[in-house]
Design a protein around this nucleic acid. Sequence first.
DNA 1: CCGCTCACTGACAATGATGTAGATAGTTCT
DNA 2: AGAACTATCTACATCATTGTCAGTGAGCGG
Lengths: 214, 214
Amino acid sequence: MRVVHPFVAMARKARPELPRKRRTAEEARTAILDSAEKLLAAEGPAGIRLQEVAADAGMSHPTILHHFGSREGLVEAVVARALESLHAQLLDAVRSSPQGTDQLTALLDGCYEALSSRGHGRTFLWLALSGYAPMMEELRVRALAEAVHVVRTEKRRGKKAQPTFEDTYFTVLLPALALLALSVTPPQNAEEAGAEKRFRAWLARMVHAHLEKG
Amino acid sequence: MRVVHPFVAMARKARPELPRKRRTAEEARTAILDSAEKLLAAEGPAGIRLQEVAADAGMSHPTILHHFGSREGLVEAVVARALESLHAQLLDAVRSSPQGTDQLTALLDGCYEALSSRGHGRTFLWLALSGYAPMMEELRVRALAEAVHVVRTEKRRGKKAQPTFEDTYFTVLLPALALLALSVTPPQNAEEAGAEKRFRAWLARMVHAHLEKG
DNA sequence: CCGCTCACTGACAATGATGTAGATAGTTCT
DNA sequence: AGAACTATCTACATCATTGTCAGTGAGCGG
């Protein structure tokens, strides 16, 4: 039934770049996930092919199946890790600077960085389109808006017109959607990058003005 | 070399639902494109499979190859037709109402309708992510912003502070990006639909206020 | 009625992707 | 050193998808 390979040694010699490396299971998993994540951001979940991931990670594709059970297992793992990483980066960006126009610009810059630097914004949109991630819930805009709303109402304690929560929610949602869409195609040159930066500053002024005036 | 099929007639009888239909070439092409466009909006360009398109259009997959030459040919045709249709619908929406807050709300509603009704927004994002369509150019935001800027400067003739074109551009770009991102996941129920409608009205007020004040 | 055109079909080839099986070779523990 | 463990490999099986081919039949002009 099984044809035993005759010339293993020869094949080995023919491709001297195959010194079977042995990593720890953890190292192997992260190497695989790193390679898969690149493909995920570039081509979406459908673009994750075992052979290609394996080639990029410097191993053969059955090794991936050994570590993740199946292609679906790999996809789930890389999706989970990417979303986790995105949320962590966004949280970092939000935690640093809460008040003032300049800080708001910095905040938007930070969020945009989180979305575009490692292709997480692209990944997120791929997932939303593919139905992997429930768009709005995953972006956790609501939670962020709640935090902002607390600060906002705090600041205008005593004023007569208190803003509604929905107003605050929309005010947070708007830049979130815009930055997400922008991150699909990162700027190709310095000029585009400059324009996008000015856009974020402009957007920050707009949002800030709206939050202040109520 | 070739095994001649022995029981064609029997096979025909076995599946009586196969009366070979003959359409005109035009009818066939549009039927195929209609089916392919559904798949394109749902799963992106990578989701266009000849067998599936053929099944949906009620024919065998070689017929598609007969009409479009190759899968790539089909994809190009359906992409071209979808973008054409999206631009036509957006143009329609923009042409109807140029001034005032209420009309601006209607305009945004119209644009959102164009993006979400037939999944054109999803299609567009699939294409942008896949690298088929150059995001910003394809949305033709610049051309729209130029038209808006003419009207805007016209209205404030004589005033001292004229808004820059970039300000107008950003003011058009912002709702464009937001609506596009929103169209990825159309509302699942009446409540979500209502919230999105209120968001568009809120956005229209914001944009209108900015355009008026300068 | 005849014959041509071409939309259409089933069968098959070719390619590429996932998954399986058994052997091989680092690592670590005793 | 020897044994156990397991990360890794090659080879193969299986399936889905695109594309080719030769033939079929509906409609139309003579």
